[in-house]
Design a protein around this nucleic acid. Structure first.
Lengths: 294, 294
DNA sequence: GCCAGCTCATGCGTTTTTGTATAACGCAAA
DNA sequence: TTTGCGTTATACAAAAACGCATGAGCTGGC
């Protein structure tokens, strides 16, 4: 499959086409933003590459040869395709419409995104959003999504990542639970409390205990990998759970538990791929998300 | 009329197209005879120029973006046009058919060319010859003719000229004339002879007298600018005339007159324009003419 | 007829592009 | 896991292209 696409320099083709349409190399050079000697050499090189004479140099203005006329149509086709590409590309990069796929954790997708997307709907009606609610680390480079909201910096350096917020997670519990089991006032009061865990639970326990606690795996009567499920368990009084304060304020009937004792750092990273640099529609969504989180 | 033909480098378009069809930049580089870094840079430059992302660099093989797919068709059109140009140009430069225009003096055209053209007809049946019988100096650069046969080296250095024969012109007369007026044996015998002149006659007389003669304008009872007319006048016994020996042998009934006394140099120059370098059909005719004269 | 203005071609210094070598990385097989 | 072969991106030297200046030639107007 090593078929040569074409045995000549395509820029030389452009040089010939422009010269033929402009009527002179000088005019073509002005049109292309090059100098006349450059055009002259490019046309000469094309003639040599193709093995034909395209222009006769006769004093002042040059005359296209019958051979040149014969080929001109195809050069025009090339030129029209090029112009069409430029036009389409300009449209592609400017249009604020099309699909944008956002991936986020289920909790983020369920509680945070809706109002932002409502706002986006008014801001850019042409954009269609797809939300991939998943705690998996989706690979942006494979275009499984255009934008990801994560709580860790992506390890792929070619991705564009922005730390849009640094929050903290604390203990929360439902008022009904606290009414039944009492409101803990020291770390020791947590020793016989019931907890709602979030997978991977070992890392969660390690993080909490590094804050000065001594929790055991047995205290986590339920563990889920789904943030919405965990939130509902907490809200309905199953036990005490850890969640970023941004989520807690959205769930009615929750009270903070020992808020000064436990504070796990929760960074919010907005991540996208290189196309952000040029795609108008992705940038619109990205900028809106960045503003909404900051 | 300073409309940009296209805002991007056409070679970069070729780089993208080849990459998209080859599946990887390395393969495209091999196909185009370039190196992989060059291809990589060209594609990157095209992306920047167009303001779109065409490929996602994902580890091993790269993936074309939806934007790239959108534009690919037009790039293909460009590529097909380029291939078509290459094909057509190759045909143009190789085909031994089409028109070839030869300009020569009327005498050359009338007496010399016919047998050569007969030969050419068998050699290359596809070629159509146009003969411009004229003593004017036709401008090859203006394509009034493709090949010129002249008796002087062209003064335009961009033309290709070949000295195919150096002959000499002598006095000739018809047997009927010599029978009536006697056969001159010395220069003095020419003092009262009648001559047939060829325009410009002053230059002719000057040339002859530099050979040791003393001819006067009055002895040229007839002057013509047409070689065939002059030849016929001589052949039919009007008087003595000067002609290259190649012509004399073609005219029956002519005898040389003082052949050792007068010998004007007559070079035969075969001249053509630049297209000889590439046009197969012109070269065929040119080579045949060169061989015929040598 | 001669001069002004335009054209294209050529020589030389500089900028840009290209190629070579290398590193980083991902996937597949041992 | 580790090795090997493939990919793409980067650093620096070499080569090619470019722009400037200049020369030569034709055209049209004074």
């Amino acid at each position: 499959m090593s078929w040569q696409t074409s045995p000549f320099d395509w820029n030389q083709a452009r040089a010939f086409l422009t010269t033929a349409e402009a009527g002179s190399m000088s005019a073509a050079a002005r049109s292309l933003g090059l100098t006349q000697p450059t055009l002259s050499r490019q046309v000469a090189a094309l003639e040599e590459a193709l093995g034909v004479v395209l222009f006769d140099r006769v004093g002042r203005s040059l005359a296209i040869t019958p051979t040149g006329i014969e080929l001109l149509d195809q050069f025009r086709t090339m030129g029209e395709a090029a112009a069409s590409i430029a036009l389409a590309a300009s449209g592609q990069s400017q249009a604020i419409e099309g699909q944008v796929c956002i991936t986020a954790s289920d909790a983020l997708a369920a509680y945070f995104l809706p109002p932002i997307l409502m706002c986006l709907k008014d801001l850019a009606p042409g954009i269609e959003i797809e939300v991939l609610a998943s705690n998996d680390i989706r690979d942006l480079r494979r275009r499984e999504a255009d934008i990801a909201i994560r709580h860790a910096r992506p390890d792929q350096p070619e991705l564009i990542a922005k730390l849009v917020r640094t929050s903290s997670a604390h203990f929360y519990a439902a008022t009904s639970y606290l009414d039944r089991h009492g409101r803990p006032e020291t770390a020791a009061d947590l020793a016989d409390a019931t907890f709602v865990g979030f997978a991977p639970v070992e890392r969660l326990i390690a993080g909490l205990n590094s804050c000065g606690l001594a929790l055991t795996r047995a205290q986590f009567k339920v563990v889920t990998d789904n943030g919405v499920v965990a939130g509902e368990l907490i809200r309905q009084g199953f036990g005490i759970g850890v969640m970023p304060k941004e989520f807690a304020v959205l769930l009615p009937g929750l009270e903070p538990v020992l808020p000064d004792l436990v504070a796990l750092p929760v960074p919010f990273w907005l991540t996208t791929h290189r196309e952000l640099l040029t795609s108008r529609r992705i940038r619109v969504v990205y900028d809106l998300l960045a503003e909404a989180f900051s």
